[in-house]
């Protein structure tokens, strides 16, 4: 019985690594079954499950939210995305990052100003306290 080595990795961690009999995944152009001896292939994956059958016939399912499938003569690698990727979602987060930068630029010296304001506040509070204690004394 022939087997091949399969690695499923994402940027954050290694999800699976071991010797398997076959694998079924959803490629961009359709379902794919990979068995030992498959021709070298590189394809994009759609979000979906990857069905892995190991040597003893045990079947395991892994969910991938898209990624890449690379088949080499003896090694197959799935480069899984960590989250479903859609153009507009990426765009939205890019805009958020830009806005954060603009906000930071607009509030230049915010930290220094904060420190100055804190000092002023402390002075004001001290003055207030002095006035209050003076008033008390006067009242007596």
């Amino acid at each position: 019985m022939y087997t091949f080595h399969l690695d499923i990795v994402s940027a954050e961690k290694s999800i699976f690594s071991g010797t398997v009999d076959s694998l079924v995944a959803t490629g961009e152009l359709g379902e794919l079954g990979i068995v030992p001896g498959h021709a070298p292939l590189l394809t994009k994956l759609k979000p979906g499950t990857v069905k892995v059958t190991d040597h003893d016939g045990n079947v395991e399912h892994y969910y991938v939210s898209g990624g890449m499938l690379e088949v080499q003569p003896h090694v197959t690698t799935i480069l899984a995305d960590t989250a479903a990727r859609a153009g507009d979602v990426d765009e939205a987060s890019a805009i958020a990052a830009k806005e954060a930068a603009e906000a930071a630029m607009a509030d230049q010296n915010s930290e220094i100003e904060y420190a100055e304001a804190a000092v002023e506040l402390a002075e004001a509070v001290a003055q207030l306290r002095t006035i209050q204690s003076l008033r008390k004394k006067m009242g007596k």
Binding site: E12, R85, D90
Partner: peptide
Amino acid sequence: NRFGGNVVAKTSNLGDQPTVTDLIGTVKV
């Protein structure tokens, strides 16, 4: 902020376990 410079993107408070998703925006810019 203090030093100056043309900041085009910014992200912070990623915590101890950042995810790739947290960084997509800044990298995309």
